[in-house]
Computed example of a mutant assay.
Amino acid sequence: MSSLTDLCRYPIVQAPMAGGPSSPQLVAAVAEAGGLGFLAAGYKTADAMRHEIEQVRAATGGAFGVNLFMPQPALADPAAVAAYQAYRGSLAAEAATYGTPLGDPGAGGGDDAWDTKVAALLAEPVPVVSFTFGCPTRDTLDAFARAGTYTIVTVTTAEEARDAQWAGADAVCAQGIEAGGHQSTHHDDPRADHTGIGLLSLITQVRETVDIPVVAAGGMMRGAQIAAALTAGADAAQLGTAFLACPESGAHPLHKQALTSPMFVRTALTRAFSGRPARSLVNRFVREHGPDAPAAYPQVHHVTSGLRGAAARAGDAQGMALWAGQGHRMARELPAGELVELLAAELRTAGRG
Rank of each mutant, 00 (worst) to 15 (best):
R222H: 15
H186E: 07
T209I: 10
Q183Y: 06
A224N: 08
D193K: 12
I212L: 15
R207T: 06
I203L: 15
A171V: 11
V215M: 01
R191C: 07
T185M: 12
G180N: 02
G180S: 03
R222W: 09
G219E: 02
G181Q: 04
A192N: 12
P190C: 14
M221P: 12
A217Y: 00
G196L: 09
H182G: 06
I177A: 08
A192H: 10
T209M: 09
A217L: 03
I177E: 02
R191E: 11
A179K: 03
Q183P: 11
R191Q: 09
G196E: 07
L199V: 07
D188P: 07
D193E: 14
M220L: 11
G218E: 00
M220W: 03
G196M: 06
T185R: 11
G223H: 05
G196Y: 06
S184M: 09
I203F: 09
Q205C: 06
P213N: 04
S184W: 04
Q205D: 13
H186R: 13
R191Y: 02
D193Q: 15
V206M: 10
Q175S: 01
Q225H: 14
R222C: 12
H194P: 01
A174P: 05
H194G: 10
D189W: 03
M221L: 15
Q183I: 10
I212E: 13
T204A: 08
Q175I: 00
V172G: 06
V214L: 15
T204P: 02
G176N: 02
